[in-house]
């Protein structure tokens, strides 16, 4: 369970301060797939960074699993952060490490060596055949799948996704989103998904928060769209969409 209560976050800018989040209260339940939408500058990414303990709120409290993050030391925060997976817009893979080593890196940070878990996660994202390649040899969608495997390898209870499909084309977006839904169903992971792409949120999330100017503009249940035809290729999809 993630609970934000009256959270305000402002950043100093010159002599004044910019308020990124303004008195925001929000509860995200376990195993929920929760969307956060908003224009750029609406505070979406800041919200994610607060949940991931990368920023501390200026006022208000952030509780993850019942624990008040404001009460933890920097070291404790660092350890808690290891229990939260993160997926980035630009994948953030290490270019000089193989696919296998990228996925194994979070385990190495915890001095764990579990080649089987790494292999399992690569199979889960259907990248097991690429484990000796380097990221530059992969497509964007493949890189993001590796990044998802990396985020899951420590079996986090929470997975935070910051615009995970914004750098991908639409067919690849569907693939990545299907994997994220699988993650929730198979591992019971709570997923918080930040995106400006409304279709992505609509296709996958249970609930969504709409942010505007750092405030919670709306909190809504998401009605899934009618099942859509699956297209085998980009060309088939483009033809259908445009005709």
């Amino acid at each position: 369970m993630i609970e934000l209560s009256h959270v305000t976050k402002s950043f100093p800018q010159g002599r004044s301060a910019v308020t990124a989040l303004d008195d925001l209260s929000l509860t995200i339940g376990d195993r929920e797939m929760f969307g956060i939408v908003g224009e750029s500058g609406s505070g979406k990414s800041t919200l994610l960074r607060l949940i991931n303990h990368l920023e501390a709120p200026t006022s208000g409290t952030v509780r993850v699993g019942g624990e008040d993050l404001g009460a933890l030391s920097p070291r404790e925060l660092r350890v808690r952060r290891r229990g939260i997976g993160m997926v980035f817009q630009q994948f953030n893979l290490l270019g000089n490490a193989t696919v296998h080593d990228n996925v194994a890196r979070p385990l190495r940070l915890q001095r764990r060596r579990e080649p089987d878990t790494v292999q399992q996660m690569l199979e889960f994202v259907k990248m097991a055949g690429h484990s000796r390649k380097h990221p530059s040899q992969l497509s964007g969608g493949e890189q993001q799948r590796v990044a998802i495997a990396r985020a899951l390898v420590t079996r986090p209870k929470i997975l935070l996704c910051d615009e995970p499909t914004s750098a991908l084309d639409s067919g690849t977006t569907d693939e990545v989103m299907a994997i994220l839904r699988d993650v929730r169903d198979r591992f019971g992971t709570t997923i918080v998904l930040v995106s400006h792409e409304l279709e992505v949120i609509k296709a996958s999330c249970d609930r969504a928060a709409v942010l505007s100017g750092g405030r919670l503009a709306a909190l809504t249940e998401v009605t899934p769209p009618p099942p859509r035809e699956r297209f085998d290729s980009y060309a088939a999809r483009a033809r259908e969409f445009l005709a």
Partner: peptide, 21 residues
């Protein structure tokens, strides 16, 4: 950003992320 999100300490940031890259 990745290293921080994974909870890397300073030496881990250097040895497992910065120098390899």
């Amino acid at each position: 950003e990745l290293a921080r999100s994974l909870g890397a300490g300073p030496l881990q940031l250097i040895g497992l992320f910065l120098y390899p890259e």
